[in-house]
Simulated assay, not measured.
Amino acid sequence: MADRTTTRPSGNLGSAIVNALLLYGINIWPGWQVLPFLTADMDRALDLINASLIAGIIVNLVCVVIRARALLALGNIVVMGFGVAAMLRLWEVFPFDFGDGWSGWPVVVRVLLVLGTVGSVIGAVVEVVNLFRALAGFEPKPR
């Protein structure tokens, strides 16, 4: 079984590419404006969404070059922090308009924002533990 505390450089590179494509797609082409359920208030949340994607790109590219578990954990904490901030801004601004269709969509989106936020906070706690374990020199042995 592979060591679960490390990732492969190809995984980090793939994540950086996906984040770059999302950044391009949201801001340049086709742009978030093509989604009919997003309102002009999306501009108020876009800065934190972009910051989260950019942080993810930077962390993943650095981790392709520098293979250190502590660095990966610290980078993941930073990225999750930006992600939580973006989800909280989306909660606050709520730039969604689902029209006259099914009236349950706002509740579904709010539940997903809560789940994403809670999941990210839990993930950040796990990464803090991983960071301390890596700094203390404790790395599980591969089986």
Rank of each mutant, 00 (worst) to 15 (best):
A16P: 00
A16H: 00
N19D: 12
A20M: 03
A20V: 06
A20F: 04
L21W: 09
L21S: 10
L22T: 08
L23K: 06
G25R: 06
G25P: 00
I26R: 00
I26E: 04
N27W: 06
N27M: 08
W29H: 07
P30W: 07
P30V: 09
G31D: 02
W32T: 04
W32K: 01
W32A: 08
V34Q: 06
V34L: 03
P36G: 13
P36S: 15
F37A: 02
L38A: 01
M42W: 15
R44E: 14
A45S: 14
L48G: 02
A51I: 09
A55V: 13
A55I: 14
V59N: 08
L61R: 04
V62A: 13
V62L: 15
C63M: 11
V65G: 00
V65L: 13
V65E: 01
V65A: 11
L71H: 08
A73M: 07
G75C: 10
G81V: 13
F82T: 12
F82A: 11
V84Y: 05
A85W: 05
A85Y: 01
A85G: 01
A85S: 06
A85Q: 07
M87E: 10
R89F: 05
R89E: 15
V93I: 12
V93F: 04
F94R: 08
F94G: 03
F96Q: 04
F96G: 00
F96P: 00
